[in-house]
Structure formats: structure tokens, C-alpha cells
């Protein structure tokens, strides 16, 4: 083949250009830390990257969900803990009141303490997490426990109405659920109420409130037998129920913990995968860059040599 100066020129320029293109690509990868920049760089990988990216963001969302669930459950647990303490104190009151050595004045004082306990139970029932009532089921913005009357002298002062969510045959407004991984939900609250024959029956706080009301009346009326025979037994029952709920909450906290750990592992995995798929292997890429640089320099110096001499230089 006949070679002309122009074709050598074109060849050299093309080689230099291609070398620069590869050089540019590698430096772009190094600067951005990513192997793929446009869909056409690798269509299959792009799809993969977008999927992994979505999964990563989703996992992070679930992590926040698990953390939120954890804090809800902690609030519930601490309220139930206080509830247990109140019940222990109530047992002391009942035992002391049932003691024959107590006189009327002492029993009246105990009755007054029972009233205080009544107040704190209502307060616990109306505990909030942020601005939400945690024992009201899905009706988180409605104060669940309200006295029928605010007048201490009224007979209805010790009647408490439950206004939170309840179960019916057709629907359930008691459960607050968070999604903690794909299609997996965790109930974060405690609410136990059911509507039977048009009457809403709350099964956690109301029995306790009724018990305290009963104890108070028995104390005022010196009804020692009822205190020891009936109230003490009822107390143990309610205490059992509270403890059952606490155990349940504890189990769910463990589940939230587990979910959180699993999600953290998952996040790590997705990050690793994403790095593998789109991340640059720096050592390798820098080696390649050095290599390209070398090739480019060589091409330049070769060009400088072959383009310069021609017969013209040697004619006198």
C-alpha cells in the first residue's frame, strides 16, 4: 500500500484521539468513582443499579420504620411499667385496708390515696408518644379515657368512658401497624377494646379503674371482707393481664430489634452490591490510566519522529 504524508497524519491523529478518549473515560471514572455514567455504557448494569438503588432507599425507609416502631413500643412499655407499679401500690392499699387493725381515719386516708391512683391510671391511659395517644388504637388524636363528669362531688366523677378505637365484627381500629420490611408489618401499640351489642368494652384500663373505684368505696364503707375476699383476687387478675401485655410488647420489641439488625445487614449488602456493580476498582483503574498515559506519550513521541523528516530535509 502506498503511504502518503496525509494518511500518516490522519493515522497519527486518530490514534492520539482514541488514546485520549480512553484516557478521558478512565479519568471520568476515577473522578466520579463510578464505572457507568450513561445507560449506553452498559444497559444491563444500569437496570441493575437502578434496582439496587431503589432497594437501598427502601431498606433505609424500613430502618426508619423499625426505629419508629421501637420508640412507640418503648413508650408503651414504660407506660405499662408504671401501670404495674400503680397496681403494686394498690395491692398494698387493699392489704392494709383489709387489716382489722386499721381505724376509719386510716381507711379514709387509704381511700384518698386510691383516688390518686385512679387519677394516675387515667393519666397513663392517656399517655402520648409525640402528640399521639398510644392506648387509643387508630384514633390517635382522640383522648381515650375521659371522666363522665369533672365535678369531684358528682357520682359520675369515677365513671370513665373509653373513646379510642375498638374491634367490631367487620373492622378493627385497635391496631397501629408499621411496615418494617417488604409486606411485613409490626403492630406497635397496645389496645384491647371490642364492641359487643353496641357496647364498647375496654379490657386493659377499664377493669383497673373499676377495681380502684370499688376498692375506694369498700374502704370508705369499711367493707373489709370484700376487700380481702374479692378485690385482692380481682387485682391479681388485672395484674396478670397487664403483665401479659408487657410480655407481648417485649416480644414485639425483640422483633423490631431483629428486624433492625436484619435491615442493617441488608443495607450493608445492598451497598456492597451497588459498589461492586457501579463502583470503580481504584487500583485497577489507576493502573489502566497509567497504561493509557504511557501509550499516549509513546504515540506522541512516535508522531514527533515520523512526521518530521521527509526528503525535503535532505535536499540541498
Amino acid at each position: 500500500m502506498r503511504i502518503t504524508n496525509k494518511s500518516m497524519n490522519i493515522n497519527l491523529l486518530r490514534n492520539l484521539n482514541q488514546g485520549l478518549k480512553r484516557y478521558d473515560r478512565l479519568s471520568e471514572q476515577l473522578v466520579s468513582g463510578r464505572k457507568v455514567h450513561r445507560p449506553s455504557d452498559s444497559p444491563a448494569t444500569i437496570s441493575n443499579i437502578m434496582d439496587l438503588n431503589s432497594s437501598l432507599i427502601e431498606t433505609e425507609q424500613y430502618l426508619r420504620g423499625a426505629a419508629d416502631a421501637q420508640s412507640w413500643l418503648e413508650s408503651t412499655d414504660s407506660a405499662l411499667d408504671s401501670l404495674t407499679n400503680v397496681l403494686h401500690r394498690l395491692r398494698d392499699i387493699i392489704t392494709m385496708g383489709a387489716n382489722d387493725t386499721q381505724d376509719d381515719a386510716a381507711r379514709f386516708a387509704l381511700a384518698q390515696e386510691a383516688e390518686q391512683l385512679f387519677d394516675s391510671i387515667i393519666q397513663l391511659g392517656n399517655s402520648t408518644h409525640g402528640s399521639k395517644y398510644i392506648f387509643a388504637g387508630q384514633l390517635t388524636t382522640v383522648k381515650p379515657f375521659v371522666r363522665e363528669s369533672d365535678d369531684p362531688n358528682s357520682a359520675e366523677y369515677f365513671n370513665v368512658i373509653y373513646q379510642g378505637g375498638y374491634r367490631t365484627a367487620t373492622g378493627d381500629l385497635t391496631k397501629v401497624e408499621f411496615e418494617v420490611s417488604t409486606n411485613s408489618y409490626l403492630t406497635v401499640n397496645v389496645a384491647d377494646a371490642e364492641k359487643v351489642n353496641d357496647v364498647v368494652e375496654e379490657k386493659l384500663f377499664t377493669p383497673i379503674l373499676n377495681l380502684i373505684k370499688d376498692v375506694r368505696e369498700n374502704l370508705i364503707n369499711n367493707n373489709v371482707t370484700d376487700l380481702s375476699n374479692q378485690n385482692l383476687g380481682e387485682l391479681e387478675q388485672t395484674l396478670d393481664r397487664v403483665l401479659r401485655h408487657r410480655a407481648d410488647v417485649g416480644a414485639r420489641m425483640a422483633r423490631a430489634d431483629l428486624a433492625e439488625e436484619r435491615l442493617q445487614d441488608l443495607r450493608l449488602n445492598f451497598n456492597k452490591l451497588l459498589k461492586n456493580v457501579q463502583g470503580v476498582d481504584y487500583a485497577e483503574t489507576i493502573m489502566q490510566l497509567k497504561n493509557e498515559e504511557h501509550i499516549y506519550r509513546t504515540a506522541l513521541s512516535v508522531g514527533a519522529r515520523i512526521l518530521q523528516p521527509s526528503l525535503v530535509d535532505f535536499l540541498r
Binding site: 445507560p39 434496582d51 417488604t182
Partner: peptide
């Protein structure tokens, strides 16, 4: 909807969007 398609026989929304991009990538390549 991010992880489950609304109609069981259809791809989820993010997948059908990714398919557009992947198709574009194949053409451009």
C-alpha cells in the same frame, strides 16, 4: 407500590420505568 405491582400481572412502576431507560441504553449503545 414501590415493591408490589398494583395489578398482579403487571410489572411494578419502578420496573416499567427502568425498562424505558434500559431500552434507551440498548439503542444508544
Amino acid at each position: 407500590l414501590r415493591h408490589t405491582p398494583y395489578q398482579p400481572d403487571q410489572p411494578k412502576l419502578s420496573d416499567s420505568f427502568n425498562a424505558i431507560i434500559a431500552g434507551l441504553g440498548v439503542r444508544a449503545m
